[in-house]
């Protein structure tokens, strides 16, 4: 029961829109940021990890309409042996999950649902975003102070059906690490190399991202999704 309403699993999102950017960051520093989860950061290249920033507008879904900002890192599935050699690293990418490090939202229903059902690190913020302009823009603000701003330039259209349909989302709240099976069905996807600009404010998470060099990094790639449907199963505790 969330705010007096019964939320049934799986939770379905019927219409969302997304803009996101991936950055290569130093693996050791990224591992230190997510050490509290007990998970191991994925290293597609030796010494480099992948940090992803995304903003999402949920229009129609089981958690109501809201805006969300996400900071995530690619992680190895718990228990998977560390890959060795360039080929092993590539093969290891097949099973990677997304560890959700920070997930501010702007509406109370999804805040409570996200924290209670999956242990997602949601907190309330003002999240103005523009997904209709030539450049997609988003800011996360607390009491008028900007924590982070992200601008993403859409790239070239990809054929529908491209992209990973199923993946695992990991989260860690109050010392408990959880895995949530997550299915995505995107359409209207555009991708490009580079194409993102990040501005960091004075929030603790912004400090962490500054420590990873995100304020001066060039994005590996950016993606925008015009229409995204998603399904979230229940979370299961994992013991890395």
């Amino acid at each position: 029961m969330i705010q007096g309403e019964k939320v049934t699993l799986p939770v379905r999102i019927r219409d969302a829109a997304v803009a996101s950017a991936m950055f290569a960051v130093p693996a050791a520093a990224a591992q230190a940021v997510i050490a509290y989860s007990g998970l191991e950061i994925a290293e597609p290249r030796r010494g480099r990890a992948v940090c992803s920033l995304a903003f999402v507008r949920y229009a129609d879904g089981d958690l109501g309409p809201y805006h969300e900002f996400a900071v995530a890192f690619l992680v190895r599935p718990p228990g998977a042996p560390p890959p060795s050699g360039p080929l092993g690293r590539l093969r290891g990418l097949a099973g990677v999950g997304a560890f959700i490090h920070w997930l501010p939202v702007n509406q109370p229903f999804t805040l409570e649902a996200g924290r209670t059902i999956w242990g997602f690190p949601k907190e309330l913020a003002d999240i103005p975003l523009d997904l209709s302009g030539r450049v997609r823009r988003c800011a996360v603000r607390f009491d008028g102070r900007t924590a982070i701003e992200l601008a993403v330039r859409p790239g070239a259209p990809l054929p529908n059906g491209a992209g990973a349909p199923r993946l695992d989302a990991y989260s860690c709240m109050d010392g408990v690490t959880r895995r949530t099976p997550w299915e995505v069905r995107p359409s209207g996807v555009r991708m490009r190399l580079g194409g993102a600009a990040v501005r960091l404010g004075d929030h603790p998470v912004a400090e962490e991202l500054r420590g990873l060099g995100l304020d001066r990094a060039r994005a590996l790639s950016t993606a925008t999704v015009g229409h995204l449907a998603m399904t979230f199963e229940g979370a299961a505790e994992v013991r890395p």
């Binding site: 219409d15 507008r57 229009a59 129609d60 109501g64 309409p65 805006h67 702007n106 509406q107 975003l129």
Partner: peptide, 12 residues
């Protein structure tokens, strides 16, 4: 109309 209402609600 429904989508407009939901987008505006999402934007608080």
């Amino acid at each position: 109309g429904a989508l407009a209402a939901q987008r505006l609600a999402a934007a608080a």
